[in-house]
Write a protein that binds this DNA or RNA. Structure first.
Lengths: 206, 206
DNA sequence: TATTATATATGACACCTTGTCACAATGCAA
DNA sequence: TTGCATTGTGACAAGGTGTCATATATAATA
């Protein structure tokens, strides 16, 4: 996380820095992007940068966190509308996610992110509740899981439900990555995702 | 790909270089690994390195290709044994894959690979036939697909079958990555994978 | 207001990369 | 031996990162 000093900065300076960095990360991958380029564009001295951030990653994942809209909340809403049916919930949630990720202003940032994402980045992008995955402490906090109608699912516990939802999430992400890589239209990505969701929901076997 | 010059090298020199590089890539990620370290350990001059390889990636993916056992062939065999049932095929194939990836001598190399893998690397590791994915030219070559019993599946075409198998492959990889990240035992990884395979096969909905 | 304390800014520096290139040293064939 | 093709070499330019002693604001206190 950025330091207190960073958050003490004037809005103008802070936003300028973030804007410049976001632009850099939208054009280059995390590895290719350079602190030099950022501080030069933002007219900030090298020393200052390191007073705000531990390193490039620190800045990067702060931006990821910022950009990522509160998707979990949105999903909960769709889940409620769907009376706790996660398949319907995911289907209706997916278009929102696509828009957030594949349309301006975030499209290029996400493209770079997804095409160069490693395991760590995956966790940063995934909904927090699902990725945390502490097997014991799930039931305590009132969470997405409480909105799910489990009776209609082949799951025996919240842990299994968690696994199932994480599976769907990862399939979802996978489709978006594939979409970025192959320049698929949103429609095509949706079709691909829905097909996989159908297999998972009803079985791929006759 | 490495140059002709590289393959002209004496076995001793070539193997020494590959050994040293493999060790480096088993301890550090592709990004962290340094050509300097490799050429120093292998007692090779900087100029020579660039006469063998275009860059670090060139060497890296050559090693990946080498290390990766011909998994496709193994899978075909399991598929035949299973009378074309891909679910049985994948179930029986998975333990082989786990051993190849999670036991000596490849374990650390794969761990680094998987924990820092991006989209490109994903494609390098995935079975070639599945990753190529040229929608037209699939049926021509006699391939895995010809061993699959499609009648029992909810797929309408070879393209759909390809998608389904790519889905399973990606779930499989995902489980292995998760396993590396969380230091799961092979047994736990298997259990996780089989559960997901069951959902996919028979449906996650009651 | 003058002085002290705290927070912020700075850029030279050491140390690391990578890829290139002019040149040296081989090996092999005529 | 001469000549050509192949292989080997390390200094070099250009770029990267993180640190640190020092300078400059800004706030707080006497």
């Amino acid at each position: 996380m950025p330091t207190k000093t960073f958050f003490n900065l004037s809005d103008a300076k802070r936003e300028r820095l973030i804007d410049v960095a976001t632009k850099e990360f939208s054009e280059k991958s995390l590895n290719e992007a350079s602190i030099n380029a950022i501080i030069k564009s933002a007219s900030i001295s090298r020393g200052s940068f390191y007073q705000y951030f531990e390193n490039k990653e620190d800045l990067y994942f702060y931006i990821v966190k910022t950009i990522k809209s509160d998707s979990e909340e949105l999903f909960k809403q769709e889940l409620k509308k769907a009376d706790g049916d996660i398949f319907v919930g995911f289907r209706n949630y997916f278009p929102h996610l696509l828009i957030n990720m594949m349309e301006e202003p975030n499209a290029n940032f996400y493209k770079q992110l997804f095409l160069h994402m490693d395991y760590r980045a995956t966790k940063e992008v995934a909904p927090e509740e699902l990725s945390s995955h502490e097997e014991g402490s799930i039931e305590t906090k009132k969470s997405v899981f409480s909105f799910v109608n489990r009776t209609q699912l082949q799951v025996d516990s919240v842990q299994e439900l968690n696994k199932l939802m994480r599976l769907i999430t990862s399939i979802m992400m996978h489709e978006i990555i594939e979409g970025f890589a192959r320049d698929y239209s949103q429609e095509k990505i949706k079709a691909n995702f829905y097909q996989k969701l159908n297999w998972l929901e009803f079985g791929a076997k006759k």
